[in-house]
């Protein structure tokens, strides 16, 4: 994280404004919650955000790569669901060992992502349409494999799901949180310290220029969708660890949450500008809103959506204002 800060430190502050606004919002929301409800003040509330949303965080990180190139991936929710169904099916019905299941699930996600990337790049099908096909395809696979939501009692999965890692102050996190944070760290490294990552920004800045500069545009474009597919599959595994079941109707609308988190985190939808760290903040903001509404108890769940819509509006207008200056 310090390396990340060092690299980005020389960029104009203006770039960081949306992210700083998100951070301020997060802190503000936490302070408000802590002032209203005593239980809110405990550190565990924050750790619970990570525990509950680690799977979404991983999905949103993959989405960040895609959006940075100026694309979009609508298939993530379906791929998450497919991963949960596949895990349950392979562990339960087929009796595969846990390690093989993990590998198989990740491979399927990678494959689906690569396929969509190839459609987008080589056949020039718009990302919106290609990943929409992916959305239907993956959800269709889910329903074909199983229409029920069996629970999972595999030893390995149960251990990962139930292990609590103690932290000072009587708090704890889950193994999934560590995995999610590792994904964030790797993503940050990829984006800021490798040629692949810089090419991602380049493609988002101007695909035509990137081609003329001799950058590996084709490989990069296919790779970001492959990466997003992989992250969705991993996110699906984390969701399995969280819920210990494989539900073909889970994670509907996750693509919206992921896109919202990325945008609230300050990444520009047309590509070329944004940070993984912003996405982390975006996911935490979404979680914080949900937590506040849960704590309130009188507000119905739909207020979450309305508030997220309002936040999206506020952040988009903020981005417009910054761009205009």
């Amino acid at each position: 994280m310090t390396a990340l800060a060092r690299v980005t430190a020389y960029r104009p502050q203006q770039r960081h404004l949306p992210m700083l606004a998100t951070l301020a919002l997060l802190v503000g929301a936490y302070a408000y919650g802590a002032s209203q409800y005593t239980a809110f003040g405990s550190g565990q509330v924050v750790f619970n955000l990570f525990i509950n949303y680690s799977w979404l965080l991983v999905v949103a990180v993959g989405m960040t790569f895609v959006i940075l190139t100026g694309g979009i991936d609508l298939s993530v929710g379906s791929v998450v669901a497919l991963s949960t169904v596949l895990s349950a099916e392979l562990l339960g019905e087929q009796g595969w060992p846990a390690a093989a299941v993990v590998v198989a699930v990740l491979a399927v996600g990678l494959l689906l992502g690569t396929g969509m990337g190839a459609l987008i790049h080589y056949f020039e099908i718009q990302p919106f349409i290609a990943t929409l096909v992916g959305l239907f395809f993956a959800r269709g696979l889910c329903l074909t494999i199983s229409t029920e939501a069996p629970s999972i009692d595999d030893g390995f999965f149960t251990v990962i799901a139930q292990t609590q890692i103690p932290l000072p102050g009587d708090s704890h996190v889950s193994i999934s949180v560590l995995i999610a944070l590792a994904v964030v760290a790797v993503a940050g490294y990829l984006l800021h310290h490798t040629r692949f990552g810089r090419t991602v920004y380049a493609v988002g800045g101007s695909e035509q220029s990137a081609v003329l500069m001799g950058l590996k545009v084709a490989r990069t474009k296919v790779s970001v969708y492959a990466l997003s597919g992989f992250c969705s599959a991993l996110g699906g595994l984390l969701l399995v660890f969280y819920k210990l079941s494989g539900d073909p109707l889970s994670a509907i609308g996750t693509e919206l949450d992921a896109i919202a988190a990325v945008v609230i985190g300050g990444t520009i939808l047309s590509g070329g500008s944004g940070y993984v760290l912003g996405t982390v903040l975006g996911v935490l903001v979404l979680g914080m809103i949900q937590t506040l509404i849960d704590f309130d108890g009188t507000l119905s769940s739909w207020w979450t959506k309305i508030v997220i819509g309002g936040l999206l509006f506020a952040f988009i207008v903020l981005q417009r204002l910054i761009a205009r200056r």
Partner: peptide, 10 residues
């Protein structure tokens, strides 16, 4: 997207 998210809540 704003109304897509918020509209369902509305």
């Amino acid at each position: 997207l704003i109304l897509m998210v918020a509209g369902r809540g509305i």
